[in-house]
Design a protein around this nucleic acid. Structure first.
Length: 272
DNA sequence: GATGAGCGA
């Protein structure tokens, strides 16, 4: 051989690889063929992974306009309501082992969201709405009004929310210090509420709402528990926002078997 | 068989 590989390959003849905007990867390298001549080898590849095909559908879905309470909001997850976790791809390594790989694109979105604050829609506290301590005690209709009150309570030192003229009920002139709890109870009793009896003692609030939420929005679930043992005392109250939903739930669940017991569902009477 | 907890600073 007259030529040495190392002699032939100088600076600009090193193999190179680049990927264009269309995802086409071009690989160029120089080799010495059997005749001792240097040849340029160009390979173009376009990888189409199953995961890209699937993500196309996902990407399209992300552009759907938002509806309901989120109508008109920009696309993508809202940090006030959504937690973004890791997007881990599983890959097979050369040795056949499964390797976890965190998706970088996804990671950057996650980091952007981390810089934003979680904001409760009920009380504006820094927890998710579903975790709000006021969630069960406040009706959905007056959540907006109560939010400011709750925010005042939770963080009196916090900077005043910009432009808000709202004055919390207990801060208003002539507001009484007592009776708040009673008004809460009245609120509770106004809601269409079902009493569910004959529940087994290991039933949880989650079980109850799972059983009833297919009939409509549930504003409150109260499960009577033993104060010491924490076990279910066998009955619960389920409040709906819509009376019709409660009615349908009553008819559907009353007499239904659950945990080998037959449930009884009726309209709750006010305890006072 | 049963109609919700707490009643305090």
């Amino acid at each position: 051989m007259s030529s040495n590989w190392a002699d032939e390959v100088d600076g600009d003849e090193l193999p190179q690889t680049f990927t264009d905007a269309n995802g086409i990867t071009t690989h160029i390298e120089f080799r010495i063929n059997e005749d001792g001549k240097k040849v340029k080898i160009t390979r173009r590849t376009q990888k189409k992974l199953i995961h890209d095909v699937v993500n196309k559908a996902v990407a399209a879905r992300k552009k759907w306009p938002k509806f309901g309470k989120e109508r008109g909001k920009p696309p993508g997850p809202d940090p006030a309501t959504t937690n973004v976790g890791d997007n881990i791809k599983l890959k097979l390594s050369s040795t056949g082992q499964i390797v976890q790989e965190v998706d970088d694109k996804h990671e950057s979105m996650k980091q952007q969201l981390q810089n934003k604050k979680i904001l409760c829609r009920i009380c504006k506290g820094d927890h998710f709405t579903t975790k709000c301590p006021y969630k069960d005690s406040l009706g959905v209709e007056d959540a907006a009004a109560s939010s400011a009150a709750a925010a005042e309570e939770a963080a009196p030192e916090a900077e005043p929310s910009s432009g808000s003229k709202y004055i919390a009920p207990h801060m208003r002139a002539g507001a009484s210090k007592v009776g708040d709890r009673d008004s809460m109870r009245e609120k509770r009793d106004e809601q269409p509420t079902l009493r569910v009896t004959n529940l087994s003692e290991d039933v949880t609030e989650g079980d109850v709402s799972e059983l009833f939420n297919r009939f409509g929005h549930i504003s409150r679930v109260f499960l009577a528990r033993d104060r010491e043992t924490n076990a279910c005392k066998g009955f619960a109250f389920v409040s709906f926002t819509m009376r019709e939903d409660a009615q349908r739930a009553l008819e559907a669940i009353d007499g239904r078997g659950y945990d080998n017991l037959i449930l009884r569902v009726e309209w709750a009477k006010s305890s006072a």
